[in-house]
């Protein structure tokens, strides 16, 4: 079962947008994006969240809905089964990612949390959220402005490798990075 089309099919309708963004971004990102641009239909407005949190919430939402793209310099980090701790092999990668993010203030960063297919979809959605936040907190500790970081969990829905073995699962337990042009 090929699961990549979920992403690449988004691409089909959004490639043009992604390309334009790349061009307007002075060529900094080295690779054009793969995931969704914003839906063309306007999202219905949300109901109020907690008091005072609304503007921050709206800003985060804006960062999520903006056309996003991949950057080769921002590498994935992997996790152990049912864990969200930052592994020692991930620290190096996150250090480099933090440097890139700090050097490119014109971008905000979406951190996607992903799980392997084992376990229930319900729990894995929460686990992916925990992984993405674990990365966000780590980057913030390294001095990255956390207001530039937004998280989203895809749970087990978007495996990188469609296989059903240890090697595929190890790849699929990951945090992935996308960037969006920071709204002015």
């Amino acid at each position: 079962m090929n699961l990549l089309p979920v992403k690449s099919s988004f691409l089909a309708s959004c490639a043009a947008i992604a390309l334009m963004v790349t061009v307007s971004a002075c060529g900094t990102p080295s690779k054009t994006g793969t995931t969704a641009g914003a839906e063309t239909g306007a999202a219905p407005s949300g109901q109020p969240g907690g008091e005072g949190a609304m503007s921050q919430e709206a800003m985060a939402r804006e960062k999520l809905e903006a056309p996003s793209m991949e950057v080769a310099d921002l590498q994935d980090v992997n996790f152990d089964f049912d864990k969200s701790d930052i592994r020692s092999d991930a620290r190096d990668i996150l250090g480099k990612n933090a440097d890139w993010i700090t050097a490119h203030p014109e971008y905000s960063v979406q951190i996607e949390g992903h799980c392997d297919e084992r376990g229930t979809a319900e729990y894995n959605l929460a686990l992916g959220e925990r992984r993405a936040n674990s990365v966000k907190n780590y980057l913030a500790q390294m001095g990255v402005d956390s207001n530039r970081l937004v998280t989203i969990s895809y749970g087990e829905e978007l495996p990188l490798d469609p296989g059903h073995d240890d090697a595929a699962w190890a790849k699929n337990r990951r945090a992935h990075f996308l960037v969006v042009k920071t709204p002015r």
Binding site: P44, G46, Q47, E122, A126, E129
Partner: peptide, 11 residues
Amino acid sequence: PLSRRVGSNAV
């Protein structure tokens, strides 16, 4: 929408 707060609104 019933809940569309940033984060997972699920199950």
